[in-house]
Design a protein around this nucleic acid. Structure first.
Lengths: 193, 193
DNA sequence: CCAAGTGGTATCGTCGCGATACTATTTTAT
DNA sequence: ATAAAATAGTATCGCGACGATACCACTTGG
């Protein structure tokens, strides 16, 4: 049959389509893709990871640039900022109600929601497994942070029904454990054939 | 076991990583992601599809903007332009030797090449199949152009060992048939469960 | 306690981007 | 045949995303 385009080509295409959709999804509120992505990240980040620097690392942009984007988002009422209790240099960002409602409407972009909903379960499954493997391989190749969910981390500890982070030795609230942690480390390598 | 992040979240993450890698891959030559993507597209586009407008549609950007990017790329010696023989409004873009050598070095970005090479065949297979299904679903949901390979198109005709496009009724050189066509239409819907 | 390191902001210049307006050419109607 | 509509592309403007650099406040570690 017709040979398949390579994975890279497909990913590039998907990436362009996503960016285009995000652009049009944010256009109504005069927001660029980067804004929606920052908001989406912050909505999914745990308490260690909802800082300007973490957003910059997640998006692969400079901290100076991201700082300005976040200030703009805060000024427009999508974010609110709280100071860190222990380290007075760091600030934590949380979505306001306005931010959350924007996010609910705009991301995933409408057509993507449709498309993913229409996709048969086995396709979604293939996609997720393939992407997870790719992300692990990329992580290995470039050695950045993995930004995985807290509870999938090597340092995640369950002790007598209570959760904790083995790295910072701090206890974790239940809702923190399903969020993105910038200190995330994958438990082990996938066994390759 | 640990529940998997949703496909959308994974795609968003992959998309960010790709953009970051492209940014750094192009930085040495003072090129932005958009330039590398335009060059990459043009390198894979067939004779119907190597025009400024097609690039704009592929990238989801306005033709005015893309026109300026392409002028910059041409001025920097990565592209050369030829006028269309029949329609004097359209111009065709081809990579120069300089353009091709840049592309070979920068895309896919080094770490992605490594990662994809390191990925077991079954993961790549899952990824490609999952992404293809997603692209078809997106195509259906948003109704844009599919930008598939010429020979996978509904209008592709093989007649006595010769290739032709059933839409324009023109004969196709063999090397055209493996390239991207902006008029591409998928042959049929995937049979969903 | 001082030096080095770190999270964050301010500011500057470049240029990607959409919007708009325009030209030149082709296609379609009448 | 010719006017009107559509199409490919460019020019230009304003905005603001982005990296680079410099800087400040705070923390950490000798």
């Amino acid at each position: 049959m017709s040979p398949r385009p390579s994975a890279y080509v497909l990913l590039e295409r998907v990436s362009n389509l996503l960016r285009a959709e995000l652009r049009s999804a944010g256009a109504a509120d005069e927001l660029e893709p980067v804004h929606l992505q920052a908001l989406d990240y912050l909505d999914r980040a745990n308490a260690y990871s909802n800082t300007p620097l973490a957003v910059a690392e997640y998006l692969g942009l400079t901290k100076g640039n991201v700082s300005q984007r976040l200030i703009a988002l805060e000024r427009a009422g999508y974010l609110k900022r709280t100071a860190d209790a222990r380290d007075r240099r760091v600030s934590h960002l949380a979505l306001t109600a306005k931010g959350r409602s924007l996010l609910r409407a705009a991301v995933p972009p409408p057509h993507w929601r449709e498309a993913l909903a229409a996709l048969p379960a086995e396709s979604v499954d293939r996609l997720e497994r393939g992407l997870l493997d790719l992300l692990r391989a990329l992580q290995l190749a470039q050695g950045g942070r993995s930004f995985g969910e807290c509870r999938t981390c090597r340092h995640f500890v369950v002790d007598g029904g209570r959760y904790a982070c083995g790295l910072t030795r701090e206890p974790l609230a239940a809702e923190q454990t399903t969020k993105i942690c910038r200190e995330h480390a994958a438990p082990e390598l996938p066994k390759t054939a």
